[in-house]
């Protein structure tokens, strides 16, 4: 199958420290790729580079047929159509669950139908009118996931999204996420420490060592 996301020869520095060192990655459409590695190895930075939240010093990123980054081009984050779900609670505190999920949708007509569909899939319809501070950790993560999926992103980045959830909840949530990603053919890149998570969700796994990826 043709590679959908291509990351070529990426270098990233924080000050004088080299975080990513000529990193290469190719992901097929619809697949779920996991990245593991020690803390501080640059896993999150890699996701942020692909999203456009960090600027690498050189390299190239191509998504489908569009060049997102090279020495001449840098597509702004908001125009990359990439979703990101992270461990930290980043739901907008002044909006209820429904409005959080509908935040990125500009079409007024289909807004409600789309959010209803997503909330049903994620089993959070009864939370629609609740505010972020009223949600548990698992509920917040499902809302954050729904908010990203509703945008039908070309690639979904998951940065340790299930850290902090208890084992029981994780066992429940994995199949739900897996089926949503598969049903919607969402290409995903997931950063995790948990090998059970890799087994439950990923098609491929890489380990990030010294700024480069090694297939596991």
């Amino acid at each position: 199958m043709k590679d959908f996301l291509k990351v070529k020869n990426i270098d990233l520095y924080f000050g004088k420290e080299k975080i990513l060192n000529g990193l290469n990655l190719e992901i097929e459409k619809g697949s779920v790729v996991a990245i593991t590695g020690e803390s501080g190895s640059g896993k999150t930075s890699l996701l942020r580079v692909i999203c456009g939240l960090e600027s690498p010093s050189n390299g190239e990123i191509i998504l489908d047929t569009q060049t997102l980054f090279n020495d001449k081009i840098s597509v702004p984050t908001e125009k990359r159509n990439i979703g990101l779900v992270i461990q930290e609670k980043v739901l907008f505190p002044h909006l209820d669950v429904r409005k959080n999920i509908e935040f990125g949708i500009s079409k007024k007509n289909s807004k409600e139908d789309l959010s209803n569909e997503i909330m049903e899939k994620l089993n959070i319809s009864d939370l629609a009118k609740k505010y972020p501070h009223e949600l548990s950790g698992g509920e917040s993560q499902r809302v954050a996931l729904g908010r990203s999926i509703i945008m039908t992103p070309k690639v979904l980045m998951l940065d340790e999204p299930f850290t902090g959830l208890d084992k029981k909840l994780k066992t429940k949530i994995y199949p739900v996420i897996k089926s949503i990603l598969q049903d919607n053919k969402i290409t995903s890149l997931m950063v995790t420490h948990d090998l059970n998570e890799v087994r439950a969700l990923a098609d491929k796994c890489f380990n990030l060592q010294s700024g480069k990826l090694v297939e596991v």
Partner: peptide
């Protein structure tokens, strides 16, 4: 405002102006 909240808005397709009016000012 945590950077992650602003980044979440950008990742959801809102540009800086739209993030200002839809997120930052209400917050």
């Amino acid at each position: 405002i945590p950077s992650s909240v602003i980044e979440a808005s950008l990742l959801l397709g809102k540009n800086s102006i739209s993030t200002l009016f839809n997120l930052s000012i209400p917050l």
